[in-house]
Design a protein around this nucleic acid. Structure first.
Length: 267
DNA sequence: CGAGTTTGACCTGCGC
DNA sequence: GCGCAGGTCAAACTCG
């Protein structure tokens, strides 16, 4: 599994957005794309690949001041809740952006959409979560090249662990949606701890709001069984650990990563 | 005083 | 070409 991780699953390598300029510059001066039509298509898909995370969150705001800086807010049509725009502040040139918006249908659901790839190393905790979202993006990009279906459910274990995970290629902007708003039966059975009972989060795990598509994730030893439980230590936030346990649990997160590796989709 | 947030203006893509 | 909506910028403001 280690070799496969090094070979083909480093998010930053699979997703060339790591080498892309910030979104604004990319928009003004898109890539030349002289390597052929197929490469150009893949690059365009990678640039626009997004991971959207839906989580129950009853608090007005999410504790995510670790490395995100808000740069704008807009009220979207059809949704009374404003959409907030954040960008990564770890590195000035980091192109990663995040959009946070509450669901118009259910105000307790928070929809966070990550776009881009970190151009700098991430803390282990953030890298761990980044690997998961990156894996989802990898699935998206891999599947989009061979299928034209819209909005199909993943046949991967992630669908079981992360909830109803869907891939959407609508509007020529491929997006992976990790729906964490509905507890999975497996988790309900296995997690009887006080944490599991409170699946509806009061705050998102720091890592969820800290990392997406980390190019350095593949080089960090977070794939072992001790990776996720260490999140709280690295982040210095108690809730990081508790939320990680709520959403995954050490055993399941490890199992998930290993199983996804076994199907050759991600490491 | 520096870092982060707010908010109105501006830019850009897209549909008609 | 025009208007709308989403996304970004940047000056003003807030906070520790």
């Amino acid at each position: 599994s280690d070799s496969s991780a090094d070979d083909d699953a480093a998010p930053g390598h699979q997703l060339p957005a790591a080498a892309c300029p910030p979104a604004t510059k990319a928009r003004k001066s898109p890539g030349a794309g002289v390597d052929g039509a197929d490469d150009e298509v893949l690059q365009q898909q990678a640039k626009k690949a997004r991971v959207s995370v839906r989580v129950k969150c009853d608090t007005p705001t999410v504790r995510s001041r670790i490395q995100w800086r808000k740069y704008g807010q807009k009220i979207s049509k059809g949704n009374p809740c404003p959409r907030a725009y954040y960008r990564c502040t770890v590195a000035p040139s980091c192109p990663v952006r995040k959009q946070v918006q509450r669901c118009a249908d259910d105000m307790s659901i928070l929809i966070t959409t990550y776009e881009g790839t970190h151009s700098h190393p991430l803390p282990p905790a953030a890298a761990a979560m980044a690997s998961t979202t990156s894996a989802a993006a990898s699935m998206l990009l891999a599947g989009s090249s061979s299928s034209s279906s819209h909005g199909h459910h993943l046949p991967f274990p992630s669908a079981g662990l992360l909830g109803p995970t869907t891939i959407s290629t609508i509007a020529s902007c491929p997006t992976v949606t990790l729906d964490l708003t509905a507890p999975h039966s497996l988790m309900q059975q296995q997690y009887q701890s006080p944490y599991a009972a409170g699946y509806e989060s009061k705050a998102l795990p720091a890592a969820w709001s800290s990392g997406y598509l980390a190019p350095y994730a593949g080089g960090l030893p977070y794939y072992g069984k001790s990776s996720l439980p260490a999140m709280g230590q690295h982040f210095g936030l108690g809730m990081a650990t508790t939320r990680a346990e709520q959403l995954y649990g050490a055993a399941h997160s490890s199992s998930y990563l290993q199983r996804t590796s076994s199907v050759g989709v991600v490491h």
